[in-house]
Nucleic acid binder design. Structure first.
Length: 249
DNA sequence: CCATTAATGGTGC
DNA sequence: GCACCATTAATGG
């Protein structure tokens, strides 16, 4: 993987290159915090980029120049481990930030990111953001909450991978997806391959398939191809309750 | 139709 | 108990 900068696809300027002013996304930290004053600068300098499904927009090791906000779509954030195995760090949806770890002293992204659905991303330069953070305490505070939350989740994940069995981790993953993306007509509202479940749970595709098969027999989940249903989250939660761990999205 | 993904079985640590 | 490899079945464009 080259360490070339993230290439912004400059197809043609997107006609819907929305300014933050008219943006509908109320979950966006920037939108929520930057009224009037510093907004104009952001509007000028931000880039909107559209990603097709499967398109990678952050390469591991690429230099950090800014941050991504998800305007629309879903993204998986991962890190490549031993013998090329992907460890999915998190799934991110509308309004979330990608690449924030590179913000501090980090020179290069330690993670990669791929759109798993058609997505629209807003890209802000590090400099602009830094300026805004210095000027706007509320914005900074919200960012801090976000970082704290991420750290909490990350620490929980360490625990889950080191102490839970594969079955528990798979269940944990299902609950995580359910919490975060919800349910649509009885199925998890995010289509993932078993491989992706495995990469998040820290196991192999085969193990996920085996656990799914077992769970199906036990009527704890339902499956129709890629679509997985979790009719009884209480029961699932019960299985991992001794690790009493929960919450956050 | 072919290609990708899912499911199942065997083996070794 | 779990990862890795091999084979076969199912699915979808």
């Amino acid at each position: 993987m080259s360490s070339t900068a993230v290439h912004i696809r400059s197809k043609k300027r997107l006609f819907n290159d929305v300014s933050c002013k008219s943006c509908q996304n109320e979950r966006c930290l920037i939108k929520r915090n930057l009224h009037a004053i510093s907004l104009s600068k952001f509007v000028e300098n931000k880039n909107t980029l559209k990603c097709k499904k499967g398109q990678q927009f952050i390469m591991e090791g690429a230099p950090v120049n800014g941050l991504f906000f998800i305007l629309k779509g879903t993204v998986k954030v991962f890190r490549t481990g031993i013998n090329g195995r992907e460890q999915i760090v998190r799934f991110a949806k509308e309004g979330e930030i990608i690449g924030h770890r590179g913000f501090g002293t980090e020179e290069h992204y330690s993670i990669g990111a791929i759109a798993i659905q058609e997505s629209v991303l807003c890209y802000f330069s590090k400099d602009d953001l830094q300026e805004a953070l210095v000027e706007n305490p509320k914005f900074t505070y919200d960012m801090m909450l976000f970082y704290a939350n991420e750290l909490n989740r990350s620490e929980n994940k360490v625990k889950s991978i080191s102490q839970m069995t594969v079955r528990e981790r798979v269940i944990d993953t299902l609950l995580y997806i359910y919490r975060k993306f919800g349910d649509l007509k009885g199925f998890l509202n995010l289509p993932l391959s078993r491989r992706e479940y495995a990469d998040y749970a820290g196991t192999t595709e085969e193990q996920v398939i085996r656990v799914f098969s077992a769970l199906k027999k036990e009527k704890l989940i339902t499956a129709q191809g890629k679509k997985i249903g979790v009719p009884n989250t209480q029961l699932l939660r019960k299985e991992i309750s001794e690790h009493n761990y929960f919450l956050d999205s």
